[in-house]
Design a binder for these strands. Structure first.
Length: 834
DNA sequence: AGGCATCCCGTTTTT
DNA sequence: CGGGATGCCT
């Protein structure tokens, strides 16, 4: 321990109170209160060197940090220092010696939030944070509990955690086994229903009759039960179970519950507005204290930022906190440190249209006549929207008179639906503008990674039939449907895992000789690898498995353009495994942490959905697509009614409050949806913005006839945006009126004449294994604007497709015969001469 | 077993 | 329009 923190107890999770310098109280809770008061007074009276972390907090924040006893709800508006309060509060508890680090339960929703919290607590209290084993996501803490008490849920402690994909495949098998038409009753839909039930903490017996009837003519409950039974034989659980099993264990085993109630002296919950019913039950069980004591639970959240209702989050949890935890103290944080008065003014006015709020109004002291109002832009169509935003970004990024430039990292485009991203990506590719897509398909979702993981899973947990089935015939071993079915039946008949069934079957002559031989090999391989498990380091074992199974070879022989990338990914996977203690530890990590870091060194514009923007902030934010049907989204309105609309409005609120200084809202008259051009109406949310804080900007002339950028000299040329003239004030501008008028007579005629970036799409659409380029660095720099830079027959190199020869030239569009990837049409900016 | 045609569907997403 | 899944045909 460092000496600066010698007054902070640091002990392992299960160490008994071995007389720390300042022992944490083990006595009844009444003592805690007294001690808390005494200690906090002492801390205040001493010239408080150790309470330095408290200085710099505003009065409400201090209140939230220091109200240690009893239930507390902190209503923390956007940008009001929520994380700071949470982390300081933990530091405070530790500093006062009220609990060991291991006695604090701190839950977040995402791994990212947990990581961040850990870092920030580390800054405050030093290494002590390492002793906080119960700081994590609901799910990671759930796993921890469940591994300890697995047998009480009918599992072994080495159970597998299935991801959504596995669940759907499993459900599909069950639906088919029941003889139900899986066309009419899709597995995906049922998997979602199961998820919904588990969000409410339901077991099959608990589900409402109507729900059961609602699927496959009343087979809902039976299927759910069959699913649970199947999970048990697989020694597996899904994400919902990570919460539901502990809840059931706590309810059925009072002694276990008591152990944890005693253990967790302080409970802190981040993003409380996002909790679902199961999480609420889980928390309430753990927070409960015997009579005179009060739950030491502190929930931090913002009802105005509740945007996950559709996946089971229940805003009611935060709205009725005071009822659930009588005598709760409610503290509002409304002083905003992030945004300008205009952004806050716009956001506040908008969100005030919602009913059923707890009611907060953000305010700021940083107001300045220089601050830009929120800009509202009208455009003709989504192409213009992307083009204009691209130009604004280039303009901002260009050094100004003082040589200062706006980092791309400080800009973001926040969309309602991910299909909107494409237009921006295409635009930015042509401009050579770095961008970053947050939340695209992830590393661990790629085919080759999932295959590899399936091998590892079977080795580590032989009952994992889902994984076994995935790879038993990978690479192709001549084990077709017939053999698999036979294996499956045998396994089900005997109630053993498929790998065991395979072991049995190859000893008989039930299989065709060829299948028998292949399957024998498979069984032998797995037996060998399993034996290596205890002795071989994870990454070595992983490499052995991938080599011996022929999986690596399979990709080496694959002529597909992306095969080398896949091999790279596999290499990276093995590399990652080497940073883990064992293959098992790695598997656990992957099951819970699906995110991949992106490259922070790259200066790039972020493109993401409004949902994934929650919790982030940017200097400049672009909010495109504010049109009826898209935002608010039609389906939210259809399925959610009034509350659906309110959730959409909160989403708009989240979007606005991400901006620190500049916010640009866009809406267009024509948007392509499902391949059809549709004319659209401006979003009702636009009318809910206060005129005092917005400015309707109009770009002069048309944005059509884009071209000749290179001729105007300089890498970025003259921007048409230079001519854009903002109109001050209100909606009574020509631009606005024209946009309103346009909405009805918009036709798709003008479309054909505009040159779309369709060629880029070819190049772009085939990039990467699953389509999306994650960091802009994979994207080629802009075209040099000299179409004639290449000539027929030139030998060129392309980042995705490799080497090839030019077989045709059409302006800056080249047709190239690639050695490996075949013939493609690409923009010349994507290739270089070899 | 693999390749091509056809059909269907099409928010938001974490763990 | 375009991706994914399914199904039929070779």
């Amino acid at each position: 321990m460092s000496d600066s923190s010698d007054d902070i107890p640091f002990f392992g999770d299960d160490l008994p109170a071995a007389t720390p310098a300042r022992p944490a109280p083990r006595s009844a809770g009444g003592g805690i209160a007294a001690r808390a008061l005494a200690a906090s007074n002492a801390a205040r009276q001493a010239s408080q060197p150790q309470a330095q972390y408290l200085s710099g907090l505003n009065p409400e924040q201090s209140d939230a940090v220091e109200s240690i006893e009893g239930p507390v709800l902190v209503l923390a508006g956007a940008g009001t220092g929520k994380t700071r309060v949470l982390t300081t509060r933990i530091a405070h508890i530790l500093n006062l010696g009220l609990a060991f680090p291991s006695q604090i339960l701190a839950v977040t929703f995402t791994n990212k939030a947990a990581r961040e919290m850990k870092e920030r607590i580390g800054v405050l209290v030093g290494n002590t944070v390492e002793g906080m084993p119960w700081l994590g996501t609901f799910h990671s803490i759930g796993v921890k509990l469940l591994r300890r008490h697995a047998e009480l849920a009918g599992l072994r402690s080495d159970f597998t955690i299935l991801d959504t994909d596995d669940v759907v495949r499993l459900v599909k098998q069950l639906i088919q086994a029941e003889g139900i038409d899986d066309k009419r009753w899709p597995a995906r839909q049922f998997a979602q229903m199961i998820d919904g039930w588990k969000n409410k903490g339901y077991a099959p017996a608990d589900i409402p009759e109507g729900d059961s009837r609602g699927f496959a003519n009343g087979k809902g409950r039976a299927l759910f039960a069959a699913y649970q039974a199947r999970l048990q034989t697989l020694n597996a659980c899904d994400f919902g179970d990570l919460l539901c099993h502990p809840i059931r264990i706590f309810r059925a085993h009072a002694d276990v519950l008591k152990e944890y109630q005693r253990k967790f002296r302080f409970i802190l919950v981040d993003e409380y507005q996002d909790t679902n019913s199961a999480q609420y039950m889980w928390l309430r069980l753990l927070a409960q204290r015997p009579a005179p004591e009060r739950p030491n639970i502190c929930c931090v959240g913002d009802d105005d930022q509740s945007i996950y209702g559709w996946r089971g989050a229940d805003v009611e949890n935060i709205l009725r906190f005071e009822k659930d935890f009588p005598g709760a103290k409610v503290i509002k944080l409304e002083r905003n440190y992030r945004s300008t008065e205009h952004i806050l003014g716009a956001a506040a006015h908008l969100i005030a249209h919602n009913e059923g709020r707890l009611g907060k109004t953000l305010f700021t002291e940083q107001s300045d006549p220089e601050h830009a109002k929120v800009q509202v832009h009208a455009g003709w169509d989504s192409e213009e929207e992307a083009r204009a935003i691209g130009e604004t970004i280039e303009q901002l990024q260009r050094p100004d008179r003082n040589g200062k430039r706006h980092d791309l990292n400080d800009m973001a485009i926040l969309v309602r639906a991910s299909f909107q991203m494409r237009e921006f990506e295409e635009r930015f590719v042509t401009l050579g503008l770095n961008y970053r897509v947050i939340g695209g398909p992830r590393f661990y979702e790629r085919q080759e990674i999932r295959d590899a993981m399936a091998f590892f899973r079977v080795v580590s947990q032989p009952a994992d039939d889902l994984a076994f089935e995935r790879i038993v015939n990978v690479p192709k071993r001549g084990l077709g449907d017939a053999t698999i079915r036979q294996l499956h039946d045998h396994a089900r008949g005997r109630g053993v895992p498929m790998l065991d069934a395979a072991r049995d079957l190859v000893a008989t002559d039930e299989l065709k000789p060829k299948a028998r031989k292949s399957l024998t090999d498979v069984v032998e391989m797995f037996t060998r690898w399993q034996a290596m498990m205890e002795t071989t380091p994870g990454h070595e074992l992983a490499e052995t498995i991938l080599d011996e199974s022929g999986y690596t070879e399979m990709w080496q022989n694959d002529r597909a353009a992306d095969a080398p990338t896949r091999l790279e990914n596999l290499k990276e996977l093995v590399q990652t495994i080497s940073t883990f203690e064992s293959l098992r530890a790695f598997l656990e990590h992957v099951a819970l942490v699906m995110d991949t870091e992106n490259n922070p060194d790259l200066d790039a514009v972020s493109i993401m959905t409004l949902h994934s923007a929650k919790g982030l902030e940017f200097e400049t934010v672009f909010l495109p697509g504010w049109e009826e049907g898209l935002f608010p989204h039609q389906r939210a309105l259809d399925e959610g009614g009034r509350s659906g609309l309110e959730e959409e409005r909160r989403l708009a609120y989240v979007g606005l409050t991400r901006a620190k200084r500049n916010c640009h809202i866009w809406f267009v008259s024509n948007r392509r949806i499902h391949g059809l051009w549709q004319s659209t109406l401006p979003s009702r949310f636009l009318d809910e913005l206060p005129e005092a804080h917005i400015e309707v900007a109009e770009a002069d002339g048309s944005y059509g006839g884009y071209g000749g950028r290179g001729q105007s000299g300089g890498p970025y040329g003259a921007s048409r945006f230079d001519r854009a003239e903002p109109f001050s004030g209100n909606y009574e501008t020509p631009g606005w009126k024209r946009a309103q008028a346009n909405k009805s007579d918009a036709t798709r005629d003008n479309w054909g004449t505009r040159s779309g970036p369709s060629v880029e799409r070819i190049a772009y659409g085939e990039s990467g294994p699953r389509g999306r380029t994650i960091d802009g660095e994979l994207v080629a720099r802009s075209a040099t604007d000299t179409p004639s830079a290449f000539s027929l027959g030139d030998r060129v190199f392309h980042m995705k497709f490799g080497n090839g020869n030019i077989s045709a030239i059409d302006g800056n569009k080249l047709t190239i015969d690639f050695d490996r990837a075949g013939q493609k049409r690409v923009l010349d900016g994507f290739v270089s001469r070899v």
